[in-house]
Design a protein around this nucleic acid. Sequence first.
DNA 1: CAAGTAGTTTAGAACGATTTTAAAGTAAAA
DNA 2: TTTTACTTTAAAATCGTTCTAAACTACTTG
Lengths: 132, 132
Amino acid sequence: MNNKEKLRNAGLRPTKQRMIVADILLNGFKRHFTAENLQDEINSSGNSMSIATVYNCLKKFKNCGLIKQVETSKDTAIFDTNTDYHHHFLNEETGELIDIENEEISLHKLPEIPQGYLNNGIEVIIKLKRHN
Amino acid sequence: MNNKEKLRNAGLRPTKQRMIVADILLNGFKRHFTAENLQDEINSSGNSMSIATVYNCLKKFKNCGLIKQVETSKDTAIFDTNTDYHHHFLNEETGELIDIENEEISLHKLPEIPQGYLNNGIEVIIKLKRHN
DNA sequence: CAAGTAGTTTAGAACGATTTTAAAGTAAAA
DNA sequence: TTTTACTTTAAAATCGTTCTAAACTACTTG
């Protein structure tokens, strides 16, 4: 399936700008990037795109599942007086957090830590959706 | 141990402002809050504090482990072309992310989901520190 | 195809969270 | 004390992101 079809299937108009972004992102290579990274890449491919369009486009792509946004990264820092090792439920609609005590969760199998690094803490976030 | 001692033990000068913050945060109650929440609370307790000081203070408290900052919340949104269910290593020094395939990790015991909510996805973040 | 309309792009302004600046103030050390 | 290093502050600056409103473009219907 080509990119034009992918966009149509996702319910998005295949505009010139979305095709440029699709050509960069939907080629099968898995990668992480920011809006600015992407704009730089667009620029250096000889095209150009307003930063507003980059954001619009990423939001659309995300909403229809063509890409993901990593780590529910809120724009506001949230602090916690609970310094014990613990995890969180996150109500994504409201941003509300609820503690999960360490005993209530257990990681069975862990991946191998990359060479030269140490495990410096694990954060588990269980995202919640209201039940209908 | 009183708050003045807690601050000294942590290597922080017990200034008037830090004591005000300590009185609010270090009373044993566990809670989540933002810098703005805290400033509001300071204001409504009859004190006042510059927002810059609130941030300075939270940064110091965090660095010496008196509080934590929740969910490695970066100020920049990171997107991912990998839309499969997967997790991440996070190099906190550089912000670099590395995928962890779903099979490489397994959650054994899960906490009970709060009433009225559904599990809408689990994100595991393993923070990495460079090995010496 | 032609004309209408609904969705899209854009530059630039606006925004909100956080950090920086530089000057004045305060705690600890000598 | 006097000195020195750290801290606080208001205000400006910065950074990522969203909004605005006007121009543009893709799709629909006639």
